[in-house]
Computed example of a mutant assay.
Amino acid sequence: MVQQTEHVVTPTRDRILRATVDLLRRQGYEGTGVKQIARAAEATLGSLYHFFPEGKEQLATEALRMDGEHYASLLRRGMESSTDPAEGIVAFADLLAADLRAANWCDSCMASAAALERIGHSPAIQAGYQAAMETWREIIATRLRAAGTSEEKADDAACFALSALEGAEIQSRTTQSDHPLRTAGTYLAALFRGLARE
């Protein structure tokens, strides 16, 4: 008896969102058009506007949420891999470096790039980025508080950690090297250990 392989068809809406995330990561908001998104998703423009009647801005807002959840998932995996936040932040830096390497250094977290491009032009995108940042900060801060760091210091350290990691991600993409991310992880771990001793 010949075993047939089952072909899984991705729903059109999911394909459109996935294509939007991929293109915005590589090209940014201004460099990506709805026709290009439809082609990449193997969808018609009619179906694109059926699912996203407000067009590109709505697509970008939804894609930003999806991308933010991906980043949050990596962050949780890293931070929850150990009860020690210092080890957790190193694990996350390693996961992010592996993610970038797998994408041949082309993909970045689209959330910050899209938000910067649309500041003053798209309150929805800006609000989506702020919500994503709050989620990411809280993942780190929660682990720091659980390890005994005061609430205020945990919040400040989480904010600084995201700033350092975002800068390191840009350097890693530019140099096509994981060294900046791993270095950021190492120094953030030292910071977190210092907070635990206070």
Rank of each mutant, 00 (worst) to 15 (best):
G88R: 06
D94F: 03
R193W: 00
A124Y: 02
L24D: 09
D156Y: 07
A127D: 11
E62V: 05
G185H: 01
P180Q: 03
A196R: 11
D156A: 15
T175P: 01
G185I: 02
G167K: 03
E69Y: 06
A38W: 00
S112E: 11
H179S: 14
E134F: 06
D107L: 07
L95C: 08
T12E: 07
A168Q: 08
S122H: 05
A86R: 08
F52I: 07
F51I: 07
E151P: 06
F92T: 11
A113G: 15
A196I: 06
A41P: 09
L17R: 13
G128W: 04
E151H: 11
K35W: 00
L64D: 05
E117G: 05
Q27R: 08
D14L: 00
E80V: 00
R77P: 02
G167L: 06
I119E: 13
Q36C: 04
E62T: 03
A124F: 00
S177V: 01
Y71N: 02
R101Y: 04
A91P: 11
A41Q: 10
P11C: 08
L195I: 00
T186K: 14
Y49K: 08
R65G: 10
D84Y: 03
E117H: 04
E198W: 00
Y187G: 15
R145W: 12
E42V: 09
Q130T: 13
I140M: 07
L188Y: 08
D107R: 15
Q4M: 09
A40T: 06
A102H: 14
A102V: 10
C109M: 10
Y49A: 06
F160V: 12
L144Q: 12
W136S: 12
D155E: 15
E42A: 10
R25D: 04
G88T: 02
G46L: 02
Q130N: 13
A189V: 01
L100H: 10
W136M: 03
A146T: 14
T10F: 00
M79D: 05
V2N: 12
T149N: 06
R18M: 08
E152C: 11
L116R: 11
G31Y: 00
R39C: 02
S150N: 12
I139A: 11
D67I: 00
S73P: 08
L75K: 03
E198R: 13
A157R: 02
R137K: 13
R39K: 11
D178I: 08
M133K: 14
M79K: 11
Y71T: 10
Q27T: 12
D155K: 15
T44G: 13
A196Q: 15
D107F: 06
Q176S: 14
I37P: 08
W105C: 08
D107V: 03
L64H: 09
D107I: 04
P180T: 06
L96C: 01
L165V: 01
Q126P: 09
A63Y: 01
E166S: 08
T44K: 03
L96H: 06
A102L: 12
Q130W: 01
F92G: 15
S82G: 12
E62D: 05
L23Y: 00
T183H: 12
A98C: 05
